[in-house]
Amino acid sequence: MLALITRQLVAPMARLVYRPVVEGRHHVPRRGPVILASNHLSFIDSMVIPLVAPRPVTFLAKAEYFDRRRTRWFFSAFNAVPVRRGNHRVAQASLDAALEVLEGGGAFGVYPEGTRSRDGRLYRGRTGVGWLALTSRVPVVPVGLTGTEEIQPVGAKLPRVRRVTVRFGAPITFGPEYGEAGQARARRRVTDEIMDRIAELSGQERATVYNERGIDTIPG
Rank of each mutant, 00 (worst) to 15 (best):
L95H: 08
F168S: 00
L201H: 02
R213D: 12
V138A: 03
V83L: 10
A80N: 06
V110K: 01
G130Q: 01
R121A: 10
G109E: 02
A97H: 08
S46W: 00
V10K: 08
A53Q: 02
R7Y: 13
T135W: 08
R189M: 13
M13E: 11
T58A: 14
D45R: 03
R124Q: 08
G105D: 08
R85H: 09
G104R: 13
R89V: 13
S94E: 05
R213T: 11
R160N: 12
A207P: 06
R167F: 08
L134R: 04
R15I: 07
T58D: 11
L36S: 03
F108P: 00
A77R: 04
N87R: 15
Y178T: 05
G155Q: 10
R206D: 05
A170M: 04
T148P: 05
V52G: 00
E180T: 14
T135S: 15
R160Y: 13
G155M: 10
H27N: 12
E100K: 10
S94C: 15
A80V: 07
R126G: 00
V138M: 03
R84S: 15
G169I: 00
N79G: 12
I194R: 00
P82E: 08
E200Q: 10
V90D: 15
R55V: 10
V52H: 00
V140C: 03
G175T: 15
A37L: 05
R189H: 12
T6N: 11
T135Q: 14
D45V: 05
P176V: 13
G32E: 02
A133R: 02
S117Q: 04
I215E: 11
R55N: 07
T6M: 13
G155V: 09
N87D: 15
V22N: 05
L51G: 05
G182C: 08
N211L: 12
R185W: 08
V83W: 00
F168R: 03
G203F: 06
L16P: 04
Y123V: 02
V140E: 01
E23H: 09
A53M: 03
M195E: 02
Y18E: 06
V154I: 14
